[in-house]
Every structure is written in structure tokens, then in C-alpha cells.
Design a binder for these strands. Structure first.
Lengths: 205, 205
DNA sequence: TTGTGCTTGTGTTCACATTCACAAAGTCTT
DNA sequence: AAGACTTTGTGAATGTGAACACAAGCACAA
């Protein structure tokens, strides 16, 4: 019974991958999947998958594999994606607009409820059904209702946006700028700088 | 002398971060930086930074730190970013368009030379100075001249695009779709699924 | 030139993550 | 009902990367 061990951070990072694969399998009307079967969708070996899942409980059926639908529910619960996660987007430029209409977020339980920008010409306009608000009103985010934010502004303004978000009670930030963000320890930042993601590829050629 | 050890993959992933910080420091006219100084820009501790750099040589000056300009050159050389990396972009939708105009790529030596899409209405139009080509002509990529590709299409078409790219001689792919891509071992894929990046954040709240 | 104060470079230690190997438990066939 | 076959769950072994501590080297002042 491993359930009371500390769960490795790497395991947490892989859980969304499992979820993505399972959602795909459900769409294909697959009812059961073995760790071997899953491994073909996530490029990890079967023992790794079994071990990861076992940190949270014994979800499988020996001799059969994992039942897709219940496992989806479990992973959603583990990652706290079973409740709707209200999300704010800051930056309604090209990248921000693309993000706002990105269908993938919904599937994981993220719901973009507010969009902010600092450009006068954009404020008031709509992306989908959401009206763009003035970034100066960021402090009006209802405390405790929005915990997650996405920053898609130019890098120069990212830090001040982050400060405002933290003050408004946001605890997780997806930073899509190239800026390094200084935040209190309790706040979790995940930075995705596309140029940097590319940066390591040529090394291996 | 560690130079002949195998370089950890994690180290390679961090090198672009160092580069980014150094480029910023150069812009600030900083001539020398210590490992401690750098650590404030990349959120890693000084010994980690020194160890990473030492895999490739002794670039520092004891008592002083690292000279910014030469270190930039060294890292660029190590990551093979000192020569221009021709890059193709497939998918000229919202995300693709945002990528195409993204200024960050240039700084790292990536130069988007071709853009492809499958939608008739987009083909022939221009993004910046680059005319969008028909994805059916992907096989016309000059062999050996383009090694890197970015896929920003809907996930359903990502696999067939990847197949075509591999056939055309591309060796590194940045996959911005949620699809898992099956490619030959020699081809390097880096998948960035923004929804998945968000997926792990709520766990820690 | 000698001593003091930094900072790098790295062997060693430690912590964490992955893989292995197999018992336990279920399925299915005969 | 029994045996062959699958597949999970996990303790133990292995592998890999991070952190530490300190010797080696450089700068600068007296």
C-alpha cells in the first residue's frame, strides 16, 4: 500500500498526460485499457504508469486493466479538475486571443471567466462571449473565486501583472511570456516560453 | 575535468534559460555575472548553475564570475544556435499566426522561412513577409536545409503533418497540439499542450 | 609580495525517480 | 474445478540528477 508515500512531482506532471490519453480512449468508446495499452499513448513504460497510479490507490482490475471512465473520474478528482476552475486571462493580443478561444481548456475543467488588457482600443470588445476589461481593474477579481491566471502580455509588463494577480488572491499562474516572475513561495508559476522550448532541440541533431 | 562526462538532459533543458538571462544582462550592459547573480534570474541555486556550465568547459574567472558576452557565445555554440536555424511553421490559424509574429524566436537564432496551411482561403496570403503555402506542397521543403518545424494545426491533422515533415527531412518538431505524435527515434519531438501545462497546477493549491 | 576575500570547478554525498521482478488476484478455457 | 494466462500493485534494486563542501585560482589592497 503506497498511498501514504509522498507523491513525486514528476508523477503529478504525468497525470494530465494520462488524463488526455484516457479522454481520447473514451471518445473511441474504449471501456478498458491496460497499462501496456496506455503506454502507447504517452510514451512511458507500463510499470511507470502502474506505479504512478498506485500512489493514489488501486484503480485497476488484475487480469483486465483499468476501466476508462472511472479512472478519468479519479484523475480529475486527484488533480482537482473535477470542480470547475475559474481562470483569468491577462493579455488579449494575438497570443491571448488564440488562448481565449482554445477549446482544450474546457476539457480539463478550466473556464476562462475574465479577460483583461491594457490597450484602450481593445477594452470593451468581446472575445467569444467575454468582454475585455481594463487591466487596472484587476484588483476587482472576486477573492477566493479565481485561483488560476494566464499571462499572455509582452514580457515587460508581466511582473507587475503577476504582482496584481497575487494581491488578488491568485495561487497558480501560467506564464506565457519570457519574463522570470518573482512571486511568494505559496504561489505556483509555470512558465512556458516557446522560444526556449525550441532552444534545446538543435543540440540533439 | 568533467568535460567528457555525459551531459544530463536536464542540463540541456536549462541552457536556454541561462542564455535568456544572459541576453537580458547584456542588454543591461552587465559585463560580468557570478553564479549567484545568475541564480536570481533563473531560480536555480549557484552550484547547479556552475555544474551545468562546467560540463562544457571552464568558462568562469575565479573571484570574478562569468564574462557575459563570451558566455553567450559559448552557449549559443553548444546549443547550435550560433548558426541560423531555418524553421517551418505548419498551421496559420490563430495560434499559428501569433507564433509567426512572435519576436522571441529570432533572438535564439530561429528563422521562420516557410508557413503552410490547408485552408484554401488562407493560402497565398501573407503573414509579415512570408506567403502562406499549401500544405500539400510540404514535400517541396529543400532537403537538408530545414531541420526544425512547428506544428500549430488542429490535433486531428497533426500526425499526418508530422509524417510529411519527417519524410521531408525535418529532425526536430515543436508540437503545439494535444496529439501524441509517433515518429522515428531519430526525430526529436517536444510537445507543449497548454491545457496540460495548466493541468498540474490545481493539485498544489 | 603576501595576505585576505571572493568565486569557480568538481569529487562526494545524498535524495529522488525509474525500472525490475514477482507475488497476488483476476479471467478464461477446457 | 483446475490450470494456464493476464495484468495489477509494489518492495527492492538500480540509475540519475541535485546539493554540498572545499580545494584551487584570481583580484586587489597594503
Amino acid at each position: 500500500m503506497m498511498r501514504y508515500h509522498k507523491v513525486p512531482e514528476e508523477t503529478i506532471k504525468r497525470m494530465p498526460q494520462y488524463l488526455r490519453a484516457l479522454l481520447f480512449l473514451r471518445q473511441q468508446s474504449t471501456k478498458y485499457i491496460t497499462s501496456r495499452g496506455l503506454s502507447e499513448y504517452v510514451l512511458l513504460n507500463p510499470p511507470q504508469i502502474r506505479k504512478d497510479l498506485s500512489y493514489f490507490g488501486a484503480f485497476g482490475l488484475r487480469g483486465t486493466g483499468y476501466e476508462v471512465e472511472p479512472l478519468i473520474k479519479q484523475i480529475r478528482r486527484i488533480l482537482k479538475l473535477d470542480v470547475e476552475q475559474k481562470t483569468v486571462l491577462v493579455g488579449a493580443g494575438r497570443l491571448g486571443s488564440a488562448i481565449a478561444r482554445f477549446p482544450g481548456f474546457q476539457r480539463y475543467g478550466f473556464n476562462i471567466t475574465d479577460i483583461y488588457d491594457n490597450a484602450g482600443k481593445r477594452i470593451g470588445k468581446k472575445i467569444g462571449k467575454i468582454q475585455i476589461k481594463d487591466v487596472a481593474k484587476l484588483n476587482k477579481i472576486k477573492a477566493n473565486s479565481v485561483k488560476i491566471a494566464i499571462i499572455a502580455t509582452p514580457p515587460e509588463t508581466a511582473q507587475q501583472i503577476a504582482d496584481a494577480l497575487v494581491k488578488a488572491g491568485v495561487t497558480s499562474i501560467l506564464n506565457l511570456t519570457s519574463a522570470y516572475l518573482a512571486v511568494p513561495k505559496k504561489v505556483r508559476v509555470r512558465t512556458v516560453d516557446l522560444a526556449m522550448e525550441l532552444g534545446m532541440l538543435p543540440y540533439y541533431t
